[in-house]
Simulated assay, not measured.
Amino acid sequence: MPILQVRDLPEDVYARLSYLSEKEHRSLAQETIVLLKESMETKMGNKERRKRLLDEMRSLDIDGEKVGDPVALIREDRDR
C-alpha cells in the first residue's frame, strides 16, 4: 500500500484531526483516510452535478427557442 507523508501540517488541523480520530475511536491514519475519501467523493460528486446541470441548461427550451449556453448568456449580460 502506498505511503503518504504530509509536511508542515498546521497545528489547528492536526488538533482537529486528533480530536476526530479519538471521537471516532480510530487511529490518526485511519481517520485521515476516511476524511480524504469522504472529501474526494463530495468534490467529484459536485463536479459531476455541475456538469449535468450545465448540460441540462444548454438544452432548455423556452417558448420554442433554445436558451443557449449559460456561460455565454452570463457574459452577454455582464457586457451590457
Rank of each mutant, 00 (worst) to 15 (best):
Lys47His: 08
Glu24Arg: 15
Leu73Ala: 10
Lys43Tyr: 12
Glu48Ile: 01
Asp8Trp: 00
Asp79Ser: 09
Asp8Ile: 07
Met40Leu: 15
Pro70Gln: 06
Ala29Leu: 11
Glu56Arg: 11
Leu4Ser: 00
Glu31Met: 05
Ser39Gly: 15
Glu31Gln: 08
Glu41Phe: 08
Thr42Arg: 15
Gly68Tyr: 04
Gln5Glu: 14
Met1Glu: 08
Lys51Val: 08
Asp79Ala: 11
Leu35Thr: 09
Leu36Asp: 05
Lys51Leu: 12
Leu17Tyr: 06
Glu31Asn: 00
Met40Gly: 06
Glu31Ser: 02
Met57Ala: 15
Lys43His: 14
Asp69Val: 02
Met1Ser: 12
Lys51Asp: 12
Ser18Val: 01
Ser39Glu: 06
Glu24Asp: 11
Tyr14Leu: 09
Leu54Met: 05
Ile74Cys: 09
Ser39Thr: 12
Arg16Thr: 03
Val67Thr: 02
Arg50Ile: 12
Pro2Asn: 05
Leu35Phe: 10
Arg26Asp: 11
Gly45Ala: 00
Tyr19Ile: 05
Asp77Lys: 12
Asp77Trp: 06
Arg26Ser: 14
Tyr14Cys: 05
Leu36Met: 14
Lys66Gln: 09
Asp79Gly: 02
Gly64Cys: 03
Leu4Trp: 08
Gly64Glu: 02
Glu24Asn: 08
Lys51Ala: 10
Leu4Gly: 00
Leu4Cys: 07
Leu28His: 05
Glu38Cys: 08
Arg75Glu: 15
Ser27Tyr: 02
Asp61Asn: 11
Ile62Ser: 08
Ala29Asp: 15
Ala15His: 06
Arg80Lys: 08
